[in-house]
Amino acid sequence: MRHVDIPGKRLRLREVTVDDVDALHAVYGDPTATEHLPFDPRTREEVEEIVAEAMRAAQAEPRRLYVLAVTDVAEGRTIGVARLHIEHDHPHSAEIGLGLRPDHWGRGIGTDLVRLLLVFGFRHLRLHRVWGARSPANTAAQLTMLVAGMVEEGRIRHHVRARGAWRDSIVHSAIEDEWEGYRDV
Rank of each mutant, 00 (worst) to 15 (best):
S93P: 05
A148K: 01
P7T: 05
D20P: 09
G80A: 13
W166R: 03
I50H: 05
P41G: 11
H85G: 06
D19K: 14
R126K: 08
G97K: 01
E15M: 15
R157S: 09
G76W: 07
T34C: 14
N138R: 00
Y182V: 10
R10N: 13
D103L: 06
A133W: 00
H158T: 00
A148N: 08
G149D: 14
E180D: 11
A162Q: 07
Q59Y: 01
T17V: 12
D22L: 14
R115D: 09
T111G: 09
E15P: 08
S135Q: 02
T34G: 10
G80L: 09
I50N: 05
R63S: 10
R2P: 15
R161A: 02
N138Q: 06
A26Q: 00
R115T: 08
A69T: 00
P102K: 06
E45L: 09
L65A: 10
D89G: 12
L37F: 06
A137L: 07
F39I: 05
R44S: 15
V171L: 10
L127Q: 05
E87A: 01
D19R: 15
H36K: 02
L116T: 03
A58Q: 10
V130T: 08
R107A: 14
L68P: 07
D5K: 07
G110V: 00
H25N: 15
T144C: 11
D184A: 08
E153I: 07
M150H: 01
L143C: 01
V51N: 04
D177E: 15
H85Y: 03
V16S: 07
V21F: 03
G8P: 06
V18K: 14
E152D: 12
L13Q: 05
E87T: 02
W179M: 11
R101A: 12
M1E: 13
A58G: 14
R115M: 12
W105K: 05
L127H: 00
D40L: 09
Y182H: 13
I79L: 11
D103M: 04
R115Y: 03
T139L: 15
F122Y: 07
K9P: 03
P102L: 15
A33K: 00
I86V: 15
H159V: 03
D112S: 04
L143D: 05
A148C: 12
N138D: 04
